[in-house]
Structure formats: C-alpha cells, structure tokens
C-alpha cells in the first residue's frame, strides 16, 4: 500500500469471524497531510467490514475534528488499504476458520 503518512493497524487479534473489528489510526508523517491534524495520538475505533465504508469513518473523523476536511481522501485511503489487507487475509485463512 502507498505510504500516505497515516498508519492504520488492527487494534486486536483478527480471527476472521467477527464482522466488526477494532482499528487504530495515527499520523506517522504530518508533512504528507494538507491540514494540521488536531491530535498526535492514536485513534482507536471499531469498523464493520460488512456494513461500513472507510469513507464513512474518514468523514466522521473530520466531523469530530481529528483531521482537516482536505485530508478526508488520505484518511479514507489509509483505512481502505488496511481493510483490503484484512479481507484478503481472511479469504486466505477462511478454510481454516470453517
């Protein structure tokens, strides 16, 4: 995945069974963002792989004041890349979890 300067990681073990997972997002390289992020902490949240989109969460983060509106695409892409990786991995381990 492209280095967006925003890091998104799993905040818990993913056994591939639950549709909602905990993710943690933080800014690794503020210079890659257009606006100044409000906080330099790690933001943890749950994400439903089946019902929600990364754009939903990115928009909510903007509305909650964590990021500037102009960074909504970067934040959404960072989450999307991580979610894609999780779903790819789940596909691979699916035979084991059934």
């Amino acid at each position: 995945a492209e280095d967006t300067g925003v890091r998104v990681e799993l905040a818990e073990e993913d056994h591939g069974r639950k549709s909602s997972i905990a993710l943690r997002l933080w800014v690794e390289d503020p210079k890659k963002l257009k606006g100044k992020p409000k906080d330099n902490g790690a933001i943890e949240f749950t994400f439903d792989l089946e019902k929600e989109t990364p754009d939903d969460v990115a928009q909510e983060m903007i509305e909650s004041g964590f990021f500037h509106e102009s960074d909504v695409k970067i934040v959404a892409k960072s989450i999307r890349d991580r979610v894609a990786l999780i779903q790819w991995r789940r596909e691979r381990i699916r035979p084991l979890t059934q």
Partner: peptide, 27 residues
C-alpha cells in the same frame, strides 16, 4: 490515564491514546 474519548453524532466512539513509542517513525 491519558485516554480521551470522542463520540461522533452517528454513534461511533473514537478513543485517543498516545502512540506507542515503538510505533513512532524515526524523524
């Protein structure tokens, strides 16, 4: 306890904590 919580109007909770030292990128 340096956790802060922000709840978005749509109901999602965001919990903010310090980034683990080991995860910060070298300058």
């Amino acid at each position: 306890n340096s956790l802060t919580q922000v709840v978005h109007s749509a109901g999602r909770r965001f919990i903010v904590s310090p980034v683990p030292e080991s995860r910060l990128r070298e300058p």
